[in-house]
Design a protein around this nucleic acid. Sequence first.
DNA 1: CAGTGGTCTAGACCACTGG
DNA 2: CAGTGGTCTAGACCACTGG
Lengths: 240, 240
Amino acid sequence: MPGPGGARSPRYLTIAATLRDRILARELAPHDPLPSERELGEQFGVSRMTARQAITVLESEGHVCRRPPRGTFVAEPRVRFRIGSFTEEANRLGRRPRAELLWAAETEPDPDTRAALDLHDGATVHAFRRLRLMEDEPIAIETTYFAAAATPGILDKADEGSLWTLVTELYGTELHHSDAVLESIVLDEKSCALLHIRAGSPGIMLTRRTYDAAGACVEYARDVYRADRAAFEVTASLTS
Amino acid sequence: MPGPGGARSPRYLTIAATLRDRILARELAPHDPLPSERELGEQFGVSRMTARQAITVLESEGHVCRRPPRGTFVAEPRVRFRIGSFTEEANRLGRRPRAELLWAAETEPDPDTRAALDLHDGATVHAFRRLRLMEDEPIAIETTYFAAAATPGILDKADEGSLWTLVTELYGTELHHSDAVLESIVLDEKSCALLHIRAGSPGIMLTRRTYDAAGACVEYARDVYRADRAAFEVTASLTS
DNA sequence: CAGTGGTCTAGACCACTGG
DNA sequence: CAGTGGTCTAGACCACTGG
């Protein structure tokens, strides 16, 4: 209640702040349902559209999660990843990783992929798109490219596990280091459907390269993570 | 009117896609104004609120930038940072960095800061909050903490330049490496005002520690970057 | 079938800016 | 002062889910 004339900030931000405080105070715990948008409108004396705007703020902060048509729920905290293998990261965090193969194919590389893998004209790639899950909750969509010439027969063998393990075992490749560019994006409709989040949700995109001991790029990948579930730990040496 | 029954996706996403295509095709170049929300509503035969929803999608993608009450404009592409000194990164990218000191003070550390800097009870910190700009465009807000005992007299000397350079020159500290946690956030009202973006815009938060050659943490910082202007390059060794 | 969030309408008033 | 985006209202219909 802003009370006498003091209200400086919009009502939807005041409502969002009230609900955020309740969540941070654990009055509302993860998985608890929030009141419906119609109920919140009544409670705060605003229209449904204004209550909805408040919920949208909390959703983009990752504090709540809409699950139509069941309702809106308090979200779980984020998982902290390092740049590397999803499988290894999940294991490090004591979670159960899983992969669902969406598709695998030998294709022409797009220009970025060709440049990253240093392919000559006409060379093809083995491409995989996989949904990555932890405890059966979808977290990320990985799209991975290997030079086809370097990975014969891999298409039939990619399954639910780690592609890195597979590449190491099949071809004796020693993976040495990775680099990545991280940026904040808005996920497209298809990705949101796969990740079980609403259209237009925020994500973090990693454009990632993995190198062998000789410094050759052996993997080029684009991963999109749910922004509400993932954070990334990184390190940098400053001795230039 | 969806027309001949084929419309699968909501109108606001269709409108956003149309405008996004024009931007990517450079039909609309950076700094060009978009039609106003009222005009777009007329052009696409929808209400202003629906046109507005389309613009909001493009805004959170970083494709456009609202500047009330002047209008909505096509945004510039993002700047690619590495984890490290804002000043050095700007120089590496051929940009002109600048800092505006918002405040500097000796204060009690919060629990996270105390733990990071490994301070004993009662030890204080020197805290700085600075707005970081490139070519006079605000990009990030840095909040930096040093142990007060290790940085005598620094409060008066912090100016427009690099804090790292200052620490190195004043105390002979050798900065060796950094680590950081990156996550996607929604910026609060005050930060948005400082960064000249609208309330509720997305940001990337870095929680950052810098260590000396002996492995002691000498700096703890929380930086928030505009998600529409910044991307981060990171590397990781895989030889565990 | 009741209730949810998703989408959408057709208005309204506001603060603020530039000309 | 005209025009902008910011906020807000009081409704509407939809697809979808769980009981």
